[in-house]
């Protein structure tokens, strides 16, 4: 509620030079996301992507948790932008958004939370995840500039399908921001090339038809073969999300994907047992992922 204006003053020339640097970095594979995935590939380890809702349950707690996630083992942070009507999210993330909004979280405040994080960590990639309306209200171009400025690396926009994404994706790319494509179990093979061609950063493979956090994973079934097929079609790393709840499922995903997304379970843990509880879960998952490919 008391968040300062998200766009810090910057001259046009400074902005242009910085944008050029970031765009070049993105195309040369030197973005934070590309560097992080390259390092993990070197170490033969999957990434742990932790989702937290910005401002949940209050701005101070959310910032503390986010700032401590890398030390606990998070490789990439997905930061939820709260929205009143999150139609693709399950109950855990809906509630997290409600708490954040009740605590006065705004989009400007979310960008400020990223800026705050960047004071102490310039390496861990940050991906914002949410819905279009708050962004459009903020102003699409203004938002992309402010996000790039604050140190955001990528965007996952749940209700922006590839058909409507061309303009935003191009603008984001010019600012060094990756628009991460979502691929669903329902996505037909003929639709994939267009989705993947537009995408940057990594591919987010939704594990099953449903909302976030609503089921547990079954990697024996169609998901395993779908991932194998997807790998043939894109050089981008593949993250799997919607359904990782514990060490066992995290390890299973880590064996077949480049990144493991944990969201609802972490958000629930934060409510049940606070920052320390959420960090403990992060450590457990990080350890499971670390060992996943060694043990087989």
């Amino acid at each position: 509620m008391n968040a300062p204006d998200a766009s810090t003053p910057m001259t046009t020339a400074e902005r242009a030079s910085r944008e050029t640097d970031r765009t070049e970095a993105l195309s040369r594979g030197e973005s934070r996301l590309a560097k992080r995935f390259a390092a993990l590939r070197e170490a033969n380890r999957a990434a742990l992507i932790t989702y937290v809702m910005a401002g949940d349950p209050d701005p101070a707690t959310s910032r503390e948790l986010m700032n401590r996630l890398p030390t606990a083992g998070a490789d990439i942070i997905e930061l939820g932008m709260p929205f009143s009507d999150p139609m693709a999210d399950g109950v855990a993330i809906q509630r997290a958004g409600e708490r954040a909004l009740a605590g006065g979280q705004t989009l400007a405040g979310t960008l400020d939370q990223v800026r705050d994080f960047r004071q102490q960590d310039d390496d861990t990639p940050i991906v914002l995840m949410g819905y279009l309306n708050p962004i459009q209200r903020f102003g699409e171009t203004r938002f992309l500039e402010a996000a790039s400025d604050a140190g955001v690396d990528g965007l996952i926009l749940v209700d922006l399908p590839a058909e409507h994404a061309a303009t935003l994706t191009a603008k984001a790319r010019d600012l060094g921001l990756s628009r991460i494509p979502l691929v669903a179990p329902t996505t037909p093979a003929e639709r994939l090339p267009a989705l993947l061609a537009q995408g940057d950063g990594f591919v987010y493979r939704i594990a099953f038809n449903g909302v976030t956090g609503s089921q547990s994973l079954d990697l024996e079934g169609p998901l395993g073969s779908a991932l194998a097929q997807l790998k043939q079609q894109t050089p981008l790393p593949i993250a799997v999300g919607f359904g990782v709840r514990n060490a066992e499922s995290a390890a299973a995903v880590a064996r077949v994907a480049d990144a493991v997304v944990v969201g609802s379970a972490l958000v629930e843990r934060l409510v049940e047992s606070g920052v320390e509880g959420a960090l403990a879960l992060t450590e457990t998952l990080a350890e499971a992922i670390q060992q996943a490919r060694q043990s087989g």
């Binding site: 139609m87 209700d159 409507h164 669903a184 329902t186 038809n209």
Partner: peptide
């Protein structure tokens, strides 16, 4: 064809409404 109501005005894109802003899971459906 993309589900939009509204068209260009004076050569500039006018406001358009409608579209298909849903999660990828629903797009094929």
């Amino acid at each position: 064809a993309n589900g939009f109501f509204g068209d260009a005005r004076d050569g500039e894109p006018g406001p358009r409404y409608g579209g298909r802003y849903v999660a990828e899971t629903l797009m094929p459906l």
